[in-house]
Design a protein around this nucleic acid. Structure first.
Lengths: 350, 350
DNA sequence: GCAGAATTTGACAGCGCTGTCATTACAAAT
DNA sequence: ATTTGTAATGACAGCGCTGTCAAATTCTGC
């Protein structure tokens, strides 16, 4: 098909009735095609779709939600300390929503404030105005209370990077364990044999997967390896403190893998504080390829997660489920190892 | 057929007709009160408002936009490299929108791609579906083409931190010049006499204001002072490069003020590269108090801008204009000097 | 072949609100 | 007292779409 971009000159508010007239059918038939209702003939579909394309018709979501039962609104829920992560998710989800004529809301659920508060916040979101679905991000995705509550209220949801509750909802993730294993292998191949790990919060399932994948590969490489670990809560300060702990142990590691970039940046700061050069004295690797990965020196070697795509995919699944070809319930997207300058061979060779 | 009225406590499904019945008036009168139309008696207002409160009524925005001419959608437009800044604006604007039952869209306008492209992108936003207003953020706010275009199309807009085109729209800002002057004074009081400045992009008006305020105060303190400057484009790498330039001049400054935090972080990295300790050898001050301010070591001494409040205020002005007490057209919010650990007395005393 | 079922389409009535116009009430002007 | 004007309210018709129901059409099986 040629790229027939119909110009919007003067256009702007074509109605369903016009499309119907153009296609020589009733407006209800147009509605049926748009909503992919069952029992419509292929020829009807063809005619209507042609008319829609010719008139460059876009359904009015206000009218749709007034007449129908759907709100054309989905919400993206967060309980995450990193604005970089949130921003990417919001961006990806937002674009996908706009592309489908949906509205996107986003809300923060502070699960630190206890179970009941958490559910109250959830209630506020779902009762406020009936929503068509919700995208959950870590660490909300692994909170059984939240999942129970959503199921109880019959709210459809899609989860990004869940660890627990497999099968309770469609999900999008990357293979965190494999990515962490890649890092382990990378560091090993660089010659490092004394490697430290900075863990994320316990509530964050993906952090655990990264840890497991990392440790498992290291154990496979050397069953007797000892990996020193410290917790950093996914925050810069936590990473700095954890890095300090590792670096001042009796056997300081020559390489440290932090489960996210913020903590990796903190580890670099801890190195600087001790006059240790990165990567010459200590190699540091992060995870996420977030904004901060290139806002430290040296730029972080890290794992790129296609967060925007993941969020967009989550929206797609939320919106298209029940339609013709049902998309896979558990989508795993590709990560990418990003080699920058924060890790180097050991012992330093040049 | 039995309508299972799964009642929600109060909220949920009350219609305007119910409110009207409750108040003993016509539904149109309720509508008038809600929309603050002229020529309504105080007694009517009182009755209707009481009924609204008792029934916990919330107007349905889908129905409102279908029936009326408004879309209940505002857009926030960006052309900004910093996700931290965007995130804060989005957050503040979003909350304000939700509080008023409005939808928020946000879009990026890439003005690097030339004038016509820039206007095309703007057109796509305002033609897509008629919007009720637009919030402009720097550096879009000072782009005369954008302003002209918006005015031409009769789109109302509010600007955050504009420099040029005073009076062309309501605006929200902080006193960038005064804040920068505070920093100059602070550094001066610390004993620094050789001070460098890292500038933001030329297109970003506020960066210029910071520069001017900073320089002016320094000149007032010492008319013969020489301030070395470099450009950093508001980015980490740019700041690092600019810092490097300053630091390797024949007369390296003992203190550097960067026009935003990202560049300040870059300056710190440049110091580290040269084995210069911050703040002992070099003091560094940033601007914005963004996420990165506490994601570097030492944490940045900087200026806190109430970005979320500014964005929320922008939305308020956009939505309430024309209503009773018209808010001030040029709102100036307070900044706050945030003293952390990246600046110290010179010469170092302890 | 024909009753009964399933498929495919259209007519029509609202969804909850606002714009328009008609109507009332009452002050000011003639 | 009558006209004129304006403030204050209501009746009613849609906005653009979908749900319901009925009608037309095409299949089934026996």
């Amino acid at each position: 098909m040629a790229t027939t971009t119909v110009d919007v000159s003067g256009n702007g508010k074509t109605t369903m009735a016009e499309v119907a007239r153009r296609a020589g059918v009733s407006s209800k038939s147009v509605s049926r095609v748009i909503n992919k209702e069952p029992h419509i003939s292929p020829s009807l579909v063809a005619m209507v779709e042609a008319a829609i394309a010719e008139l460059n018709y876009v359904p009015d979501s206000a009218a749709r939600s007034l007449a129908g039962s759907r709100s054309f609104t989905v919400v993206v829920a967060f309980d995450n300390p990193s604005p970089n992560y949130i921003m990417k998710v919001v961006n990806g989800a937002y674009r996908a929503c706009v592309a489908h004529g949906y509205h996107m809301r986003f809300d923060t659920i502070d699960s630190q404030r206890g179970h009941s508060s958490c559910l109250d916040q959830l209630d506020a979101i779902i009762k406020n105005s009936r929503i068509d679905g919700i995208v959950l991000t870590p660490p909300l995705v692994d909170n059984p209370l939240v999942l129970d509550h959503l199921e109880l209220h019959g709210i459809r949801f899609v989860r990004i990077a869940p660890v627990a509750g497999k099968g309770r909802s469609p999900s999008i993730s990357i293979d965190d364990a494999a990515a962490a294993a890649d890092i382990a292998q990378y560091l090993w191949d660089l010659g490092h044999r004394n490697i430290g790990f900075v863990n994320g919060p316990r509530t964050h399932g993906a952090a655990g997967k990264r840890r497991d994948g990392f440790l498992k590969r290291l154990c496979a490489l050397d069953p007797h390896i000892e990996v020193q670990q410290a917790d950093g809560a996914f925050l810069f300060d936590g990473g700095m403190e954890a890095g300090g702990k590792l670096l001042s142990s009796k056997r300081p590691p020559t390489a440290i893998f932090a489960a996210n970039d913020d903590m990796a940046a903190g580890v670099i700061a801890a190195c600087a504080q001790r006059q240790l050069a990165v990567p010459d004295d200590v190699s540091v690797v992060g995870f996420d390829d977030s904004w901060i990965a290139t806002s430290v020196w040296p730029h972080l070697t890290t794992i790129y997660q296609p967060i925007e795509e993941m969020a967009a995919a989550a929206i797609e699944i939320l919106l298209h489920r029940g339609a013709a070809g049902r998309p896979p319930e558990e989508l795993v997207l590709n990560y990418r190892f990003v080699e920058r300058a924060s890790a180097a061979p050991y012992p330093a060779s040049g």
